[in-house]
């Protein structure tokens, strides 16, 4: 099976976000594989191990994303491709990324493409579905289970906490939800082997794309942090007085009832 995984380099979940001059400060921050993409990598490796074939991880980003690709290789992926847009694109968006990925995947005869359900930084959840659309193949999002049998695929997906079972056929794009699996740690032998696995680097030119072809469809107007959490309020007095006050506050102040 020819399996592709779309992978994004994101801030570590433990990083504090600092904004300076209207943009997020990246200096000294730790970066990881987007956690949802990590599920996708793990699932891809498991499917390959049971069905045979090859797993290629693809990332659109800068030079630095090589580290996350190497990590995926250390986990067990076979090949990696970095589409380096550092020099060509200053402000990309979901359209940019999906257009580039689709262009790359065109003609690759992917049987299965896995992506994260959402990236923990941008959080749009659009790239996977857009890529599928551009490639004109079906997609299923937020999956929590997948069984491949020949060209037919059985999937359980998360629907706002409920689950839905779907049958589909390859080729297919799916996006991974939490609960799909427990991603493995890259083992030390895996890390040593990853050094020798192929990691190809491409630029827009190599995909016959111009900057104009992938120009962002959206514009970021402002970046700001959520408001600081206010201190809580402790109600006092007799219990029934407290309950009444709580109800009235929920109604008048919080405006939730």
């Amino acid at each position: 099976m020819n399996i592709f995984v779309l992978l994004k380099r994101t801030f570590d979940t433990e990083e504090k976000i600092v904004i300076s001059n209207g943009s997020i400060v990246e200096d000294g921050a730790e970066f990881i594989i987007n956690p949802y993409d990590e599920y996708a990598v793990e699932e891809a490796i498991q499917i390959r191990d049971s069905q045979g074939g090859e797993v290629t991880v693809v990332s659109v980003g800068g030079e630095e994303a090589e580290k996350q690709l190497r990590t995926a290789l250390a986990m067990g992926a076979d090949k990696a491709v970095l589409i380096n847009i550092e020099d060509d694109i200053e402000n990309g968006d979901q359209f940019t990324t999906s257009k580039i990925l689709a262009e790359f995947l065109q003609g690759k005869e992917a049987d299965l493409i896995l992506a994260g359900n959402v990236a923990i930084d941008g959080g749009s959840g659009q790239v996977g579905p857009r890529v599928a659309d551009l490639l004109d193949i079906p997609y299923i999002t937020t999956i929590t289970n997948i069984t491949v049998d020949g060209t037919s695929v059985k999937i359980v997906r998360d629907v706002e906490g409920d689950s839905e079972t779907i049958e589909a056929a390859l080729p297919l794009l799916v996006t991974a939800q939490q609960g799909l699996n427990e991603p493995r740690y890259p083992s030390l032998p895996g890390i040593m082997k990853a050094k020798k696995k192929p990691l190809e680097e491409l630029e827009l030119d190599d995909l016959d794309l111009d900057e104009d072809d992938v120009e962002a469809k959206t514009k970021t107007i402002e970046i700001f942090l959520p408001p600081k959490k206010e201190a809580g309020k402790v109600l006092e007095g007799e219990l029934d007085v407290q309950v009444k006050e709580l109800v009235s506050l929920l109604h008048s102040e919080a405006k939730v009832i």
Binding site: R70, T71, A74, Y185, P186, I191
Partner: peptide, 14 residues
């Protein structure tokens, strides 16, 4: 180097 960092990370996660 990157491998050393990865090894450290695997240990840390473990």
């Amino acid at each position: 180097n990157d491998e050393q960092k990865m090894i450290a990370k695997t240990t840390e996660d473990f």
